[in-house]
């Protein structure tokens, strides 16, 4: 009990003093997950739009696959990326295993299906409503895609935030491909796991609090985006 009380006091101290190690870890977490979501968005949104708009045989299979991949277990993604990047793997010569780059790749793969599947759904629904009007304007597929992406912007941002929430809170993938190396690849989740097992509860709790705060902030942002969208009838 005494230990726990001490730990709480220490946690508080770490947070208030903006401990340098703590900041470094939080910073890397945000950077890795942020970059992963950016990449997933740049690929996933157009991919989702393409699947929403194009009509080709086997399209339904891609839709099912994307939806199924939304629930990919992070450890499995970590393992797959590990196999790709390990010395014997096809991308082994790049030498990026156990670097933040590897972590970004793993998280981008984890988030991509979420972004692509949600984008596909949103844009396909909107296409039903817009298609005739856009065709009357003489728009081709390219114009339609960009119009639909812009008009779905609030829903798409929500999808990106959902992806970020999943990435930043995930341990399995980053620990496998990052290796949890001090000052190099330590992010919030992996550090919490490690420090807890070492008995350094204060540090783990401080990070836990920061993580919960970030996830809450992301949800608040989603909520306020929805609110803005509804208020201007853009939802």
């Amino acid at each position: 009990m005494h230990d726990l009380t001490n730990a709480f006091a220490e946690t508080f101290g770490l947070l208030v003093s903006l401990d340098a190690d703590l900041l470094e870890i939080v910073g890397l977490s945000l950077w890795v997950s942020g970059l992963a979501v950016l990449i997933a968005g740049l690929i996933g949104v157009p991919l989702g739009a393409l699947v929403a708009i194009a009509r080709f045989p086997g399209r339904w299979a891609i839709v099912v696959l994307l939806n199924a991949m939304m629930g990919l277990p992070p450890v499995v993604v970590g393992l797959a990326v590990y196999l790709l990047l390990s010395r014997a793997g096809p991308l082994g010569p790049l030498g990026i295993l156990y670097t933040p780059t590897a972590m970004v790749i793993a998280q981008a793969i984890l988030v991509l299906p979420i972004v692509a599947a949600l984008s596909r759904q949103t844009i396909e629904d909107m296409k039903l409503e817009y298609e005739d009007q856009l065709r009357v304007f003489g728009m081709g597929p390219r114009g339609m895609v960009s119009t639909l992406i812009w008009d779905a912007r609030y829903s798409l941002m929500t999808a990106l935030l959902a992806g970020f929430g999943r990435a930043v809170a995930e341990v399995g993938a980053v620990i496998i491909v990052g290796g949890n190396i001090n000052h190099v690849t330590r992010v919030m989740t992996t550090t919490i796991a490690l420090e807890t097992s070492k008995g350094n509860l204060a540090f783990a709790m401080a990070l836990g609090l920061v993580l919960v705060t970030i996830v809450t902030a992301v949800n608040a942002l989603v909520f306020s985006l929805r609110h803005t969208a509804t208020r201007s009838a853009y939802a």
């Binding site: 409503e129 817009y130 005739d132 009007q133 065709r135 009357v136 304007f137 003489g138 119009t147 008009d151």
Partner: peptide
């Protein structure tokens, strides 16, 4: 297509 204007029974606004 753009030379033919069409206002639908239910207007579609972006």
């Amino acid at each position: 297509a753009a030379r033919l204007g069409f206002v639908f029974q239910r207007p579609v606004l972006l």
